[in-house]
Structure formats: C-alpha cells, structure tokens
Amino acid sequence: MSALSLHKRIEENTGLLIFGILLVSAIGGLVQILPVLNQKSLQAPSTNTQPYTAVELTGRDIYIREGCSVCHSQQVRPLIAEVERYGPYSRAGEFVYDRPFLWGSKRTGPDLHRVGGKFSDDWHRIHLIDPRAVIPESIMPGYPWLAKREAHRAGDIVAKMTALRTLGTPYTDEQIAQAEADLEGLLEIDTLIAYLQMLGTGLDEEIAR
C-alpha cells in the first residue's frame, strides 16, 4: 500500500486518525521523558541535602502560595557571571526533595538558589514586609500579612509530611509526630525565612568551598 493510499484511509477513519495522532505525538515523550524519569542519578541527594524540616516545608509552601517563583528563579547556571553573582551552580542532587521544582523561568528579581545565609533573619523580616525599607529601588511587592498569620494554620503539616513520605521523602515517625510542636508559636514569615536561609545549603562541602 502506498503512503498516499494509507493516508487516505487515516483521512477517512476517525479511529485511525485518533490513534495516529496519539502514536505520533507520544514517541517524543516516550523516548525523551521516560529515560529521564528512570535515571537514578537524578533522584540521588547530594551529601548535604536533607528533607525539608516541618518549619522549612511550611515556609516553602508559603513561597509557592505567594507565587515567589513567578519572579525569582532557583537555578544558578554554570556561567562565570552567574557563579560570581549568586554562588556555585545548581546540581540535580540538591533538588531531589523539591515537589514541585521551583527553578522558575523569569528573573524579575535575582536568583534565590544560593540566598541562604547571605542576609540576616532580621533583614529578611524587614525586606519581606516592606522591601523598599531596605532596597529603595526594589519593585518587589510587600507581604505584610505573613507577619500576622500563625504558621500552624498555613496547612495540615502532618498530612503534608505523610503525603511526602508516601512519595519517598525519608521522614521518620518522630519527625512527623514532632511537626506540629515545631510550628508552635511561629508566624508564617518565620517559616518563610527559615526556608530562605536553608536554600542552597545542601551542596557537597568540597564544592561549596
């Protein structure tokens, strides 16, 4: 059967057309995505990379909720200028506990993957509530409500950690049992700062140096 008459059949048969589209469009995904999903090295944590603590996880989910990743990337590229500006470039092993990944696609503000430890907690607190109090040129929105809400109300931390454990994050029973107590007395802004301060600190020590 020639290619043209084969195509005539597809052109006149709904089922064949659906099947053809599905087949042709799936090939790329199968050849490209499946090997990546099976690549074990992309799932192995760097030696210093630990699962997020209850406080950090809460902070991370606030980072997600407020859409920080819309303007801030978390992916330092292996370029001289970027390594100099931000720090060591990002490795796959640092992201293995990130669900979802937060690499971002736009830097309206600077990259944050190596922001941990660069500023004091107090600086972050002022900056998050009113960015222009510390950086006059800043165009970042302020987040005053973070300093008013209690952290333990930002989501069911036990359910979150249990769900993540189901997905493979190695949380111990004690960590989960302790989670609510960890959040006791903290405001949302405290957990977000805790998250920001640990960002990028999961790198192997030799590389970090």
Partner: peptide, 23 residues
C-alpha cells in the same frame, strides 16, 4: 498526591519534575 483541597505534591521531584513540566 492531594494533601488538602487546595494543596497537592507532584509525583515527580526536582530535575525530573522540571523535564515533565516543560514537556
């Protein structure tokens, strides 16, 4: 995996999640 009504965690993590998302 859903956690609450407005929150879920992706089945994929890190670099793999990135590849699936941009696919």
């Amino acid at each position: 995996i859903p956690v609450t009504f407005g929150k879920s965690y992706s089945l994929y993590a890190g670099a793999q999640d990135a590849v699936v998302q941009w696919w």
